[in-house]
Amino acid sequence: MISIRNVTYDIAGKPVLCDVSLDLPRHGVTALIGPNGAGKSTLLSLVARLMPLQSGGIDIDGQDITTCDTGALARVLSILPQIQDAAPRLTVSDLVAFGRYPHSRGRLTAEDHRIVDNSLDAFRLSDMRNRALETLSGGQRQNALLAMIFAQGTDYLLLDEPLNNLDIAAARGLMTQLRTLADEQQRSIVIVLHDINYALAYADHLVVMTEGRVAATGSPKEVISQDLINRIYRTDAAVIAIGDRRLVDVGP
């Protein structure tokens, strides 16, 4: 379990997070949703120790992230990085093999190689394992990075808006894959999503944030309501119920 206690965070004097206390459950897919500027990405960055905490505390499975060894933490928790245009000239399999760095410190064992191969298979990258990263499309590059953090073998995987720039087939493929990871390997996935419908369709838990605070938490069915959409997103999109599922109709 990731427990966030009284976290407040200011950027340039403006509060981005205001006294957030929140438990992100172990196992399953947890989606962070909310309007732009709600503090979702900041919260994720703080959990992943990308930025130092200003106040409050974050524990992962009872370990305080500020005192825990960063190398040890990399075996428990991973965050999907983004590679900008200046990608290093690495092959896809080189990149995925770096996912084993927290375990093997660069000296890969037979077991590490097996995990890397599995990961390349799982993300359908085996055919392009010797391709240079810089020759891949944005979507393929993100896929290679996903394979890297998959090979990292952490219980917790954090993803910040991974569906940006993916077409519907790729987006559904990725969400299905994350579901499989959660269901078959009992991994815990925390994902920031913009499209509420993806969150409703694939997540076990929703955390709705607005203006630096947590507005609601719970299962998609419990949390999403017409009232919430109106109140949090300040828009009048309709929430439709289809059997057990909920859907947000974006039409006028």
């Binding site: 960063t70 965050i79 983004q82 996912g99 760095y101 927290p102």
Partner: peptide
Amino acid sequence: AADQFAILGLGRTASINLGLN
């Protein structure tokens, strides 16, 4: 430390993710 320097080339987020100080 060749691996560490190669990982730095992936950027700060990737480095911290992989447990690099």
